[in-house]
Design a protein around this nucleic acid. Structure first.
Lengths: 197, 197
DNA sequence: CGCCGAGTTGAACTGAATCAAGAAACGTGG
DNA sequence: CCACGTTTCTTGATTCAGTTCAACTCGGCG
């Protein structure tokens, strides 16, 4: 039994009855992903969603020039998957890789759908997850359209102070959409400004 | 009866039985939004989703420097709403405004949820809409992270050739995340290159 | 110990923003 | 249907944020 966070998540984010929660937890498998290993590679169809119990994953793409673009970090308590790939059964354009040794719970899509069909509170739970996802993506787009590198970095430090300490800076840069060199300069600049005041 | 596109959309994107479709169509109200008028303003809670039968809407934000950032165009056959605002009942940070005189169908969230609870095929339909939305947002983020202004413009012309002809260029620029001046230059550059070859 | 990936710094460069001015297109009222 | 004012689009000159390339440092790990 390691699905502690997931059980917590379910009880605070759904109205599932204990028996149903139990059934779900029993049905779900878990997986250990070693640091550096991949759970999904571009070209493959994504099959399942992961819920991270422990550790940290990254969700990213590689463009035609070979550059990586980090769409999402997934630390404890977060979900990762290419939902579009799962739902439409398309090959994914993204990679999911462990940045730390990671324990995760595998949520099988068809099983989740079955549950949603049978139980209304489960459907509502699913709905909530999707809406959360949409909100997050929309905020990200708005941020990318409206904020400078420095503003995006400051926003990042506010929202994910923990992640900042756990991943190499070049990945934060890749998340922010700037080069590692630029991030280094942004940080230097901020440090100097903070020092003066 | 003007909900022609919506009926079409339902029959090709859902497995709803005719009687249910009928019930849904009868229940939905429509709205006429005059060019320039707003359906949603930042600060308000978004209450319903619109399906555009005819015309064109824009979904955008205004940042602290007063600049507009266009998140989405909604021409015929598209949905618009701030789903996060509806679902979580938060004030929205976005505006929805008509760029042309627009006929749209109002989809009431609580009614949709009721339907989803009662009918599985309706739940699946809802699910599909949400996943479509997620796919679109994710693509957009990836595009913003990885492509230059010119690449984004070319992508736009491929995906939305019709919209390009219907809206002022400055709005396309706002969608692409660049200034109108830059877009003008990108277009000039492309025209010259095409002319030579 | 030696190496390799990560971070920093500098210098030159470039894509895009800004500011400003003029030209074209557009809608509205007379 | 024309005249007018208002947006929109273009073009130029300049500035600036962020990139690129290259060199060097540092810290960890085999």
């Amino acid at each position: 039994m390691i699905e502690i966070r997931f059980a917590d998540f379910l009880s605070s984010n759904s109205t599932l009855e204990p028996t149903l929660m139990e059934a779900l937890l029993n049905r779900c498998k878990n997986v250990h992903i070693k640091k550096g290993d991949f759970w999904l590679r571009a070209g493959e169809a994504c099959q399942q969603t992961l819920f991270v119990e422990n550790g940290l994953l990254r969700y990213y793409s590689i463009d035609d020039k070979g550059k990586e673009h980090l769409l999402q970090f997934a630390p404890e308590g977060w979900f990762v998957s290419d939902r579009a790939s799962i739902f439409f059964n398309e090959p994914s354009a993204y990679f999911i890789q462990a940045l730390e040794d990671t324990e995760a719970i595998i949520l099988d899509e068809s099983f989740m759908l079955d549950l949603a069909k049978k139980d209304v509170s489960f459907m509502e739970f699913n709905n909530k997850l999707l809406h959360n996802h949409i909100r997050q993506l929309q905020n990200r787009i708005n941020q990318l359209l409206s904020a400078s590198a420095e503003e995006r970095y400051l926003h990042f430090t506010r929202i994910y102070p923990d992640i900042l300490l756990r991943v190499p800076q070049l990945m934060v840069a890749s998340y922010l959409g700037i080069t590692p060199e630029s991030l280094s300069r942004v940080r230097k600049e901020l440090a100097q400004r903070n020092h003066k005041s």
